[in-house]
Simulated assay, not measured.
Amino acid sequence: MSDNIRVLLVDDQELVRYGFRLMLEANPGMVIVGEASDGAQAVSAVGRLQPDVVLMDIRMPGIGGIEATRGITRLHPDTRVLVITTYDIDEYAFGALEAGAAGFLLKDTRPDDLVAAIRAIHSGDAAVSPRITAKLIQVAAPHLLLRQTVDADDALTELTAREREIFVLIGQGETNSEIAATLYLSESTIKANVGRILSKLGLRNRVEAVIRAYEIGVVGQQLT
C-alpha cells in the first residue's frame, strides 16, 4: 500500500490552488490528485478521486466550504477535510467543525505547519489553529458546561478504564504521539484505542471527541 497522502485542493482562486500545489508537492508523500473551485465540484471530485485529505476553502461562490464539508463527511466518511481560510470568525470555525471537518487553519499558517496538519489528520489526529482553539474554548466552554445534563460515568460506560484515560487526554488536546509518551504505550496502540473510543461514543473524529469531553465535563476543570 502506498504511503502517499492524496490531497484535493478546493479554492475559488486559481492562483491560491497553484500556490498550495507547488508547496505541497515539494514535500515527499504529498500527491495532489485534483482541484475544485467550488463546493459542488469538491463533493463530486471526492467521489471520483477518493482523496485522503481535502484542503477546503470556506467562502466560495455557490456551495461554500461548510456545506461541502458536510456533504463530503456524510458521503465519504474516510476522507478527512482540513478547512483553511483567511477568516477566523467564530461562526466559520464552529460551522466547519460541526460539519465534520477534522481541522481548521488560517491561510497565514506556516507551510511546515500546514504539511504537519495534513499528516496529522490523515493519521487520525485533529488539527486546529491555536488561535482558533483559544476562541473555541473561550466562546464555547460556558455553553458546553451548561449542557452537562449527562453524568460522565453514564456517558462513558461503554469505555474501558484505559479508553477513558485516553479520552480525557484527547479532550485536553493531546495528539496520538503525545498520549503514547504520557502513557508509555506505542502510537499504534493509541491509534487503535482512539478508533474504538470514537466508535463506542458515536463520534466522527477527534474534534467531536474534544467537544464531547467538554460537554460532559471530563476536562471542564482545564478551562480555568
Rank of each mutant, 00 (worst) to 15 (best):
G103D: 08
R21A: 11
S37P: 00
D112R: 15
A99G: 03
L146E: 14
L106V: 11
R80N: 12
L136N: 00
A93Y: 01
A42E: 03
Q41A: 15
T79G: 06
E98L: 07
A116R: 14
Q138D: 14
T149G: 10
L82D: 04
A117D: 03
R131V: 08
A117V: 07
R147A: 15
E67L: 07
Q148S: 14
V150Q: 12
A152Y: 05
I32M: 08
R74D: 12
A140Y: 10
Y92D: 03
T69D: 10
Q148K: 15
V53Q: 06
F94L: 13
D90P: 01
D88K: 01
A45L: 09
V139P: 00
V115H: 06
A140G: 15
R21K: 14
Q148T: 14
I58W: 00
A68M: 08
P111S: 11
V150K: 09
L24E: 01
R119C: 10
V33L: 10
I84F: 01
I132T: 07
D125K: 06
P142E: 11
A96N: 01
E98M: 09
A116Q: 13
I137R: 11
R59T: 00
L114I: 14
A68W: 03
L24T: 02
Q138T: 14
D113R: 13
D125N: 15
H76Q: 14
A116M: 05
G100I: 06
V33W: 09
H143Y: 15
V81K: 01
